[in-house]
Design a protein around this nucleic acid. Structure first.
Lengths: 153, 153
DNA sequence: GATGAAAGAAATCCATT
DNA sequence: AATGGATTTCTTTCATC
């Protein structure tokens, strides 16, 4: 699966920091010439190690001032209950992250909204309308201290 | 601040989905020709609306099988205590996200590690060595149901 | 502000080692 | 697997509307 050598990991490190670095510059940084560097990047893309390239956008500039972590407990934990819940939240753009947690097997969601009233609208028109939810607990973030998508390589 | 018109928001939507889309294709999708589309993208970059471009890497392919959410309470909440804590965690690559939360004014961290023993190493050599921490509570994620960095535009 | 064209730079492919 | 060069494609700038 992941037989990534040292050069692959270097490449991934640089691409996580700058997804638009030129092949020439990237090749220089990892000590290869352009062609083999290019081939490695293409292989990493094909193997699904690099999943995609993204522009990162400032949350405040979009007017999204509210970040909420929501703990959700389901009434039943049968496979089909989980699947139905996961399918629903996956379709909502306000939900940026969702994790199935150990312990009580509940879900942890990170949701963004413009303000408290649009968060309330999200709760009322979407989340609380789902069947099979036993409890919802919202925790609000005062500020985002760190946000990185660069995994340690 | 954010006088983004409909076309700007369309551009941001497409760039969040594909950070390497060509100007030609992007221009077509938003109904402009290449030059004005290019100018808008450059402006969005200069204004800090687009913060950067990133390659997204598969966590499992890197062998990072453990995702943990950590709730941390500080002994004191003076500005300098917060600053010191935030500076420390910002430097650690294992910490991908950190939020200052309302309520008890504690921190919520998302941390990744290869396995439980390397997570333990992170706790022992880094987190628990910080001064002024009153409590640490780890919650493990069984699976990542959704992970998106694309903000709703 | 938008347009189209033109120059420069980068990605991509291929023959060679 | 890596290299250097050739080709194609994109970015970026500029004059014009």
């Amino acid at each position: 699966m992941s037989d990534l050598d040292a050069i692959d990991r270097k490449i991934l490190g640089h691409l996580q920091a700058d997804g638009r670095i030129t092949m020439q510059e990237l090749a220089g940084k990892v000590g290869l010439s352009v062609s083999p560097c290019h081939r490695r990047v293409k292989l990493l893309e094909e193997r699904g190690v690099i999943t995609r390239y993204i522009a990162s956008v400032d949350q405040k500039a979009l007017g999204l001032h509210v970040s909420v972590f929501i703990s959700i407990k389901l009434a039943r934990q049968k496979e089909e209950d989980l699947k139905r819940f996961e399918k629903a939240i996956s379709a909502w753009p306000e939900v940026l992250e969702c994790y199935l947690m150990t312990g009580n097997r509940d879900y942890l969601l990170r949701v963004v909204a413009a303000d408290l009233s649009s968060y309330e609208a999200f709760l009322k028109t979407k989340l609380t309308r789902l069947d099979g939810i036993a409890s919802i607990e919202s925790s609000f973030a005062l500020s985002q201290v760190k946000y990185s998508i660069a995994l340690p390589v």
